[in-house]
């Protein structure tokens, strides 16, 4: 069976007049229908760039893509224009970190949901309005009919993120991309929104990629977890394996001693040292300068992602 999404050796490079940034350097993973893949990693590790590549959202004139992103067998990276627009928001949709800035401030929530519905389903204005109201109900926004007429600034942060989820689900996508969807929210609201996403994901049998800084959140929502470092996945495993027995020295630093109850809110900044410069393609293990287990062979070539067992992969010559 083909997976819902299959990313193979994805490389993303930004070329600007003054410099080149190798943001993603060979990322491969699959997502099945009904599965949540959590992606963890510190700031600048390429999580958002990977996620946005699935919708080809980067500025076309200065982004170089290579590798393959296949959605139900259709190659995304070669899509352009109308074909790409038909994919966006219809088969794959995205929830942004900051609902306050991801909604257009001068259009109502209702207008912004209905324009999406009408664009992809060809429904009439009235039908689209009806759909928008049902969606707000589905994400449990009280008095949805009134809320349709509200502007984004008239809602609370949690309410806006619910509306963002409603918008994302408005055209029955099969894959939902969530880029730190709860980071901007208060702790209690955070939990509610997480529970909502998980519940809707099960109900609608969605594939979800959930990017986060937050170990506790990743463990709570994910079926599998990938850890990114310097534009590569350094480890990919089922959530229990990742929580109980991480293999990569970087994942260990992040997780091994810390994943217990009440870890939500813990940020990934415990490992000394800084991530490498992305200006060049790495010629060795990118983590070597910060790694306690570094050996000469780590520096000979970039280590490949090797299986530990059939569902656990690690990019480390020592740990594999």
């Amino acid at each position: 069976m083909t997976p819902l999404l299959s990313v193979k050796d994805l490389q993303v490079t930004f070329v600007t007049p003054d410099r080149t940034i190798h943001a993603v350097n060979g990322v491969s993973f699959d997502v099945k229908r009904g599965e949540t893949l959590g992606i963890l990693g510190e700031s600048g590790s390429g999580k958002s760039v990977t996620l946005r590549s699935i919708l080809k959202l980067h500025p076309a004139h200065r982004t170089r893509w290579s590798g393959s992103i296949a959605l139900e067998g259709d190659e995304v990276l070669t899509m352009e224009g109308r074909a790409l627009a038909n994919l966006r928001g219809r088969r794959v949709s995205m929830i942004f970190q900051e609902p306050a800035t991801a909604f257009d401030p001068v259009f109502t929530i209702g207008q912004q949901i209905t324009e999406s519905v009408r664009r992809h389903t060809g429904k009439s204005e009235a039908e689209a309005m009806k759909r928008a109201k049902d969606l707000l109900e589905m994400v449990r926004i009280p008095s949805p009919a009134q809320r349709l007429a509200a502007y984004p600034h008239e809602m609370s942060g949690g309410m806006r993120q619910r509306a963002m989820i409603a918008l994302a689900l408005s055209c029955d996508p099969s894959l939902l991309l969530a880029d730190e969807p709860t980071t901007a929210l208060d702790a209690t609201v955070q939990i509610q929104v997480l529970l909502l996403i998980r519940e809707l994901q099960r109900e609608l049998d969605l594939g979800v990629i959930f990017v986060t800084h937050d170990i506790g959140v990743a463990v709570e929502v994910s079926d599998r977890v990938g850890v990114m470092y310097a534009g590569k996945l350094v480890e990919l495993a089922g959530v229990e394996q990742m929580a109980d027995a991480p293999r990569h020295p970087y994942s260990r630093g992040l997780l091994a001693s810390t994943v217990h109850d009440g870890m939500r809110g813990q940020r990934l900044e415990a490992i000394p040292g800084a991530p490498p410069d992305l200006g060049e393609v790495p010629a060795a293990c990118s983590f070597a300068p910060r790694c306690k287990s570094v050996e000469p062979r780590c520096l000979a070539a970039p280590p490949p992602l090797k299986p530990v067992d059939d569902s656990h992969f690690v990019r480390c010559v020592v740990a594999a």
Partner: peptide, 23 residues
């Protein structure tokens, strides 16, 4: 960011221009 968000939901350039001009 809302311009990126509009692209992410498949709006065409004309529709995005409308949002931009109203802002």
């Amino acid at each position: 960011e809302f311009v990126t968000a509009l692209q992410a939901k498949g709006m065409n350039d004309g529709r995005i221009l409308l949002h931009v001009l109203k802002n």
